[in-house]
Design a protein around this nucleic acid. Sequence first.
DNA 1: CAGCTGACTTCGGCGATCGCAACTCAGGGG
DNA 2: CCCCTGAGTTGCGATCGCCGAAGTCAGCTG
Lengths: 159, 159
Amino acid sequence: MTLEGAVTDRRGRLVEHCSITKAIAVVGARATLLVLREAFYGTTRFDEFVDRTDLSPGVAAARLEQLVELGALAKQPYREPGSRPRDEYVLTSMGRDLFPVVLALMRRADKHLQPDGGPLRIVERGSGKPVSVAPHTDSGEPLDLEDLAVVLDETWVRP
Amino acid sequence: MTLEGAVTDRRGRLVEHCSITKAIAVVGARATLLVLREAFYGTTRFDEFVDRTDLSPGVAAARLEQLVELGALAKQPYREPGSRPRDEYVLTSMGRDLFPVVLALMRRADKHLQPDGGPLRIVERGSGKPVSVAPHTDSGEPLDLEDLAVVLDETWVRP
DNA sequence: CAGCTGACTTCGGCGATCGCAACTCAGGGG
DNA sequence: CCCCTGAGTTGCGATCGCCGAAGTCAGCTG
């Protein structure tokens, strides 16, 4: 990857508005990613989140609420027969957009941190073929790191 | 995404060996992702990392060292004329494998957290076309969340 | 050889996050 | 009517990661 234009001197305003910095505000907490993992696995109810993530109820509640505020999860009322109404937590389309992040982390850990692969694998339904995640153009051609460039958006050159 | 087999009851051993859990040990720290962002942008020297990430020298040193231990960065000695020998930090191939994670975070933040897009954009060199990151099979076909399944690896069914 | 500079390292403190445990609150069962 | 259970909430202490400032140390500069 190469830098183009006057990008190399990028203190101040640029670092404050960096997308990574903002993304970290969301996934910076350990628990957030665990909750998201379970949401993608299909978990929707509070106690299932608690059991399957091994988080304490307090932390789970805080992260679920934060993800609801962010718009990644939505609360939907449901009622089990013989129980009072509760809310379950379902992924929104904005939440589903986080899937590449979670998948990229899993794939990377599978490759370099887990000697024999993890207990769970994500595959193509039906064929069972493994799934990976990689950069590509909007038209679908795969891209290598060497094919990429970082450019400064024109609207940011002048305040 | 759907779950297949006896995956729904996955307390204990399974959560401990989850790839996400291991990945969080790496990128769980805010500073690690900022350092990686700069490494992908081409930064190699200590003070450049400090300036461009706005991290304190102590934190930058700790994260750089951790990434070296993990094998994502490698120290390479260099010597500016009129200075003593120093080390610079360059991405290894294992480190480059983290690029989808960083790119996925940037894309997601660009889409949902930055109203007008961030100051820096990653594009295809030459064409200038935008780059995204999405799941696909090893043979290259793009996949939707609905095309995916989570399966339990056979080697984990019996201890 | 005395001071200066660049490249880190070390130290003290602070705020966020986490785990544990206890508490609440509503509905169902006996 | 009392206890049980499921779904959280609250409080507290411990830990983690971060920041700012000060300290260190090697080589150049005068």
